[in-house]
Amino acid sequence: MYTKVVALLVAAATLTACGAAAGSSDVSQQQPRITSAKVDRIAAEVPQAIRDRGTLQVITSVGTVPPLSFYDNDNKTPIGVEVDIAALVADVLGLKTQTNVASWENVFVGLDSGKYDAGFTNITVTEARKEKYDFATYRLDNVSFEARKGSNWKVSGAPDVAGRTIAVSSGTNQEKLLLDWNAQNVAKGLKPVDVKYFQNSTDYYLALQSGRIDAYLGPNPTAAYHVKSSGQTEIVGTISGAGPTLQGEIAATTKKGNGLVQALNDALNQIIADGSYRKVLDRWGLGNEAVPKSVINPPGLPRT
């Protein structure tokens, strides 16, 4: 997703507060890691220098809330869906995972320099990024409308939000999508959306629980995990973070032309086939972001 998603996830540190007790045991590294088996023919595709080293140097940007990449209870071990998927890929390649943590901008600096082999950190495929990087997709890039459980309301298009009160974070891709939908509705004579903004992320969920808003539109990973851990809300609609004309996709990212993307792609398709991929997504409540297959360098978000 756009880079602001990372900042949003960091800012949303307390989003899961109302479900912390329910979800705390789910985010511990104490649980056995889901694994996959080495596949020799795929492992043979890895560049010789990486095979000789024996490790896949993964870079991720750690936030403070589940389920992407965040620190375990020891405040030093990176865990989350991104870390788990990277480890599965390394299993298939016959490598050990070395998970490195960097700020968002330094993820790309590290890939550019060759210090890290691959980024697994909610990186969306874009046409601009394809000039410098190769991509192997592994999750859908979606945003979701989260409402109180039992709301009996579904969102599949712009008319469904007409007249509703919806919260969104200012300056995000989600805000742009919501305002675009609202403009379409107003042009058709439908009731406008009452868009709400709050000072911090916790307030969205307090407003949702009290009935002051009908839904919160935010990144699907945060929403899906909150639904899983709290048991008090539900997702009533999911749309592509790229908008109505393109399905955005999250991908393993590597320096263009370094010879690793085919191995990453084949390893991802292997874990999709053997079922370990789906187990990881379900563990983190992200089954609705599963891809049927990994694709190399698909159409990305257009230049803006």
Rank of each mutant, 00 (worst) to 15 (best):
A128P: 03
N100P: 10
N100L: 13
N122G: 04
V125I: 11
V92Q: 12
T126P: 14
N122I: 02
I123S: 14
F108G: 07
N106G: 04
I123L: 15
L111A: 12
V101T: 15
L111E: 10
L95P: 12
Q98G: 03
T99L: 15
K96V: 09
T97D: 04
D112E: 08
D117G: 11
T121G: 09
G94N: 06
R129G: 08
L93W: 03
V109H: 10
A102E: 05
G114E: 05
T97H: 01
G114D: 06
N100E: 13
V125Q: 09
V125K: 09
V107Y: 02
I123F: 13
K130Y: 01
T97M: 06
V101K: 13
K132Y: 13
I123K: 15
K115T: 12
Y116D: 10
D112I: 01
S103C: 00
K115I: 07
I123R: 15
D117W: 08
G110N: 15
N106A: 10
A102R: 12
Q98E: 02
A118W: 01
K132F: 11
W104Y: 10
G94L: 01
I123P: 15
K115A: 12
A102M: 03
E127C: 03
A102V: 01
K130E: 04
A118S: 09
T99A: 13
V107H: 02
D112H: 06
K115M: 09
T97N: 07
V92L: 05
E105G: 10
F108T: 09
S113Q: 07
V101P: 08
G119R: 02
F120A: 03
D117V: 11
N100I: 06
E105F: 08
N106H: 14
L93D: 05
N100A: 04
K132Q: 12
L93F: 04
Y116W: 08
Q98W: 00
S113L: 06
K115G: 08
Q98F: 00
A118Y: 00
T99F: 09
Y116P: 03
T121C: 12
T99S: 09
D112Y: 03
A118C: 10
E131N: 15
L95K: 13
N122V: 05
E127H: 05
N122A: 03
S113I: 05
K96W: 01
V109W: 05
T99Y: 05
N122E: 04
E127F: 00
T126I: 00
L93T: 11
N106P: 07
L111Q: 13
Y116C: 00
K96G: 09
A118E: 06
F120M: 07
A102C: 02
T97I: 02
E131M: 14
N106Q: 13
D117N: 14
V125M: 10
L93C: 00
V92S: 06
A128S: 12
V125A: 11
T126L: 07
L111W: 11
A102T: 01
T126S: 15
V107N: 13
L93A: 07
I123Q: 15
S113E: 08
T126M: 08
E127M: 06
V101M: 08
F108E: 02
K130I: 10
W104C: 01
W104A: 02
E127N: 13
V101Q: 09
F120V: 02
A102P: 01
A128L: 04
R129L: 14
K130P: 07
V107P: 06
